[in-house]
Design a protein around this nucleic acid. Structure first.
Lengths: 125, 125
DNA sequence: ATCACTATTGATAATGAATATCATTATCTT
DNA sequence: AAGATAATGATATTCATTATCAATAGTGAT
């Protein structure tokens, strides 16, 4: 017997958290979103729960950097550039044709790329 | 006045930790190394300290995956494949010419690539 | 070898991100 | 409106990692 699909409910908290990520420009962490929504009264546990759920539902993107998960309003595949001095993160297009360079063969089915360029940004030099 | 260079001492602990990473095959975490060296009596703080120092000194590599830092005996630039089911990690060559695809321009000096392919391995299918 | 200097160690407390628990609240379907 | 249950918020807990600090042990000079 197949597992019954758990229905996702639309709550005030979920909407606010989604909007906060969609409106973000700095690849916020969970605590960044918590701070942004400070006067909403949303608990920190809900922030974590909904961020995970939104990623799972494909509404937002995520990646980890410096020991914490960062969230991304952009869901289309793309790469990042990070400055190792100031830890700022920029979005950048994936190199054209990168998927053709994937090590896919009959022993591994490949479906996602995580690409980050690390360097020093202009401001830090 | 230039900062005085702090001299790195060669200790029993450092040698054992370096050897453990160099002999590893599974991209071990700090606690993996701690477990491997359980009967050496090395404290967990020293494991963390020396792993960081070894990375800083360019003796080993590191990257983060699933909320923890993994260490790598290979220091040459290379990519990883991870299985999202069993979390196993494989080494794989960087796509040839990837550095020519870097978004380097006069506002960002690029010196490192972090590339991970994510998929499902043969065993998990 | 011994000395003096100080980097390193080990035990442990502390931090910080993320998850688990659970009684209460709010959504959704009928 | 009512029943079923997903979601919430407060908080305890877990887990990886770092900070603290007295004791120990490399290292270079004598």
């Amino acid at each position: 017997m197949i597992h019954k699909q758990k229905v996702r409910r639309s709550t005030r908290q979920r909407r606010l958290i989604l909007d906060a990520v969609k409106d973000s420009l700095n690849h916020p962490s969970a605590s960044d979103i918590y701070a942004t929504l400070a006067d909403s009264g949303i608990g920190i546990a809900t922030i974590y729960r909904q961020l995970s759920a939104l990623v799972e539902d494909g509404e937002i993107g995520s990646f980890e950097y410096q020991g914490e998960v960062r969230y991304d309003p952009i869901v289309q595949p793309h790469a990042h550039i990070v400055c190792s001095k100031c830890d700022k993160i920029w979005d950048v297009a994936l190199p054209k044709g990168i998927n053709n360079l994937a090590p896919t063969n009959d022993s591994f089915e490949n479906f996602d790329v995580d690409l980050t360029w690390k360097g020093v940004c202009n401001d830090c030099r």
